[in-house]
Structure formats: structure tokens, C-alpha cells
């Protein structure tokens, strides 16, 4: 095996002068799902925003493949093959489903080519291409978000609490979509989550984050199928 796809090296980051993340080191290999678990306010979203280039790291390095991407803006990251499924500001509510999907890819030719892929996973999105995204239900909006990731076909996608506010059946569909992205499209996933069982059901590797530091990591099996992790997520 060559080097990992995404490699974070002692990453420290935050807003203003206050660090939210402290010395995070993390690796994501190709076609692997890594889940970072933690309660609210522990720095999970900041981690993804730092990788994307929305937040400048204070120290440490972000390697993508062989390339140092530490101080690179979001548009370079996207062009290199990193997609972001954020927790807030997820969609353009006043644009149609189609335009939201078009914005996921560089060219309209690729958009048409890859549309059948979406149809296979979320047929409902194809039915609603002309509808504006703001009128979709909460679950459908998450489907659209996942569809945009799938149509972009990035090398890696950073997913921010996709399960939040979703009903169990919808959470399962998200899990299926992520696994499909990994197994059939070879997309790596860095997932930040609070939803323990969802994360454990998809992840190859799990890391537990607390107050901006990774306190535990391993495979789901190594971590005893979650009992210890649940303790972290509780008070």
C-alpha cells in the first residue's frame, strides 16, 4: 500500500486565538470509512472545516495523497477530490434539486453522465428534479445532500452529522448510501457523528473526540462494540 489518502499530522486549529482542536493526528485510507465520535461542542465540525480550508490551522499538517494541503482554500480542496457534506448551510433552498446537483459537479456533461447513479440509490430525487430544495422534507434534504456527494464522486467525502434529526429508517438509508459509496465507487469517508450505532454500523475505524482531542481509537470490534464509547458520549 502507498501512503494514506488523507493524513492529518498534529493538527491544531480554532477561531481567533482560541484553539478548538489540539494536536489531532488521523489517517484515512482509500475506500475506507473513518468515524470521529463526540458530543456537541467537542470540535468535530471544526475538524472538517479545517480540512476543507474554511478554518486555517494554527499548526500541524494536512496531507492529501502526496501533496501538502495545509493552507489551501476550499476550492483547491474540492478540485483535488475532497467533498464536504456540512451540517449547516447544506443546500441552496431556493434552487431546484437539479441545480443543487449540478453544483456538485464541475461540468454539466458529467452531471448528465452520473445522474443514473443517483437514480439507483435515491430514485425520489430524480422525481423531484424541478422542485426547489427548500420545499423538500428534512429527510429528503439529507438525501439530496448525499446525492450531491455521490454525483461529485470525490476521492474522499467529509460528512458532518448526517444522521441528526433523521428517523431510524432514513438513518439506515444513509448508512447504505455511504457503504455503497465506499464499496462501489471507492470513495473514502470521514464521518463525524454523535449517533453511535449508526457510526459503528458503517465505520472501519473509529476515533473518539473529547474537548478537541482524540482520546481513543480503533476498529469497532476493538472498542468492544461501543460500550466504552457510549460512556464517552454520556455525561
Amino acid at each position: 500500500m502507498s501512503s494514506p489518502l488523507l493524513c492529518l499530522n498534529d493538527l491544531t486549529s480554532g477561531y481567533g486565538s482560541a484553539a478548538v482542536l489540539h494536536d489531532i493526528s488521523l489517517e484515512v485510507d482509500r475506500a475506507r470509512i473513518v468515524a470521529v465520535l463526540g458530543k456537541n461542542g467537542m470540535g468535530k465540525s471544526t475538524l472538517l472545516k479545517t480540512i476543507m480550508g474554511f478554518v486555517r490551522p494554527m499548526s500541524g499538517r494536512i496531507m492529501f495523497g502526496e501533496e501538502d494541503m495545509t493552507n489551501v482554500g476550499p476550492n483547491r480542496m474540492v478540485r483535488a477530490g475532497v467533498a464536504h457534506a456540512p451540517q449547516e448551510h447544506t443546500l441552496f433552498p431556493d434552487l431546484t434539486v437539479e441545480d443543487n446537483l449540478r453544483l456538485g459537479v464541475i461540468s454539466d456533461r458529467l452531471f448528465r453522465q452520473r445522474l443514473p447513479e443517483i437514480e439507483a440509490v435515491f430514485p425520489r430525487m430524480i422525481e423531484r428534479l424541478r422542485q426547489s430544495a427548500g420545499t423538500l422534507s428534512g429527510g429528503e434534504q439529507k438525501m439530496l445532500l448525499m446525492s450531491r456527494v455521490l454525483i461529485a464522486q470525490p476521492k474522499i467525502v467529509l460528512v458532518d452529522e448526517i444522521s441528526e434529526g433523521l428517523q431510524p429508517t432514513m438513518v439506515n438509508r444513509m448508512a447504505e448510501a455511504l457503504i455503497r459509496a465506499r464499496d462501489e465507487l471507492g470513495i473514502a469517508v470521514l464521518l463525524v457523528e454523535q449517533h453511535l450505532s449508526f457510526a459503528l454500523s458503517v465505520a472501519d475505524q473509529v476515533a473518539m473526540m473529547k474537548l478537541g482531542e482524540i482520546v481513543e481509537r480503533g476498529t469497532p470490534q476493538e472498542l468492544g462494540e461501543g460500550d466504552r464509547l457510549a460512556a464517552h458520549l454520556a455525561v
Binding site: 441528526e164 428517523q167 431510524p168 449517533h195 458520549l233 454520556a234
Partner: peptide, 13 residues
């Protein structure tokens, strides 16, 4: 439990 972030409740139990 089923609708609002079932996981938080689950974790707290």
C-alpha cells in the same frame, strides 16, 4: 426518542 436524535437519549441512558 424515535424522531429527535434518538442517539443522544440512547447515549445518556
Amino acid at each position: 426518542k424515535s424522531v429527535y436524535a434518538g442517539h443522544q437519549v440512547e447515549a445518556a441512558e
